[in-house]
């Protein structure tokens, strides 16, 4: 009985002191959160700009298909921590820059793969009909392929974003900031609560982003595919 009360009290104590930590570290937390969001937004944004066009070209050109999908696959097999650490000997220095580049390379594959799969998954009969009726190649892409592939491409973007929110924690190891800095300090000082201060917000951020992008995915799905 006493043990149980002590246990619950211990939890209560822990929560109270964690809240205290949050309040004390408020400014650092907000800075870290903002930095973390940048660590996600910049690489994912750049990956979208690169991977969607390359994914589209890959559906039309066998060489691009071979090179791009192969490259992205290899990037994905390198362990994320190693990829980030590798940026330093590759001359990126330390700080945000190596983190951005590594996370960008990491975000490419899901978007590229889904763009490629989404576009090449559009029914061949539809493309034949569209071309046969007198659509230019660009019109086929814009009016037929992209709208129909949009949910698949969006799913790739969603996967990439959620993965990068998790992986961006490792940016702290090369001085890239973000929520990972709390975790790294916490590990060094063996302070669980500091680790949680980094881990909890990044997990919440991932969940929230997944939910929001899930909604966007639904929204870009053409009405006619839902019925």
């Amino acid at each position: 009985m006493i043990g149980e009360i002590a246990f619950i009290f211990g939890w209560y104590e822990g929560i109270v002191s964690f809240m205290q930590l949050v309040v004390d570290q408020q400014d650092q937390l907000i800075t870290a959160l903002r930095g973390h969001m940048m660590l996600v937004a910049v690489p994912v944004g750049c990956a979208v700009l690169v991977a969607i066009p390359v994914g589209i070209i890959a559906t039309r050109n066998r060489y691009v298909e071979f090179l791009a999908i192969g490259f992205a696959n290899i990037m994905q097999t390198v362990p994320s921590l190693a990829l980030i650490a590798l940026m330093i000997p590759l001359g990126m220095g330390i700080g945000r820059r190596p983190a951005y580049v590594a996370l960008f390379l990491y975000a490419i594959l899901p978007i590229l793969r889904n763009t490629y799969a989404g576009i090449s998954g559009v029914d061949a009969g539809l493309k034949k009909a569209a071309r046969g009726m007198g659509m230019t190649d660009f019109q086929v892409l814009k009016k037929i392929e992209l709208p129909l592939a949009a949910p698949v491409i969006m799913a790739g973007l969603r996967t990439a974003t959620v993965i990068i929110i998790g992986t961006a924690v490792l940016a702290a190891y090369v001085g890239g900031g973000g929520l990972g800095s709390f975790i790294m300090t916490g590990l060094g000082l063996v302070r669980d609560q500091l680790i949680l201060l980094g881990a909890i917000p990044s997990a919440l951020l991932a969940l929230l982003t997944d939910f929001v992008l899930g909604r966007v995915e639904e929204w870009v799905t053409p009405e006619g595919l839902k019925v």
């Binding site: 009969g125 569209a130 659509m135 230019t136 037929i144 053409p222 006619g224 595919l225």
Partner: peptide, 22 residues
């Protein structure tokens, strides 16, 4: 070719109605 095709109706076995359009 694009202009030529617009002067000819084209119907195929796969039907090919665009599912995202009414």
């Amino acid at each position: 070719p694009v202009k030529l095709r617009r002067t000819m109706g084209y119907v195929i076995q796969e039907i090919g109605l665009f599912p995202h359009m009414t």
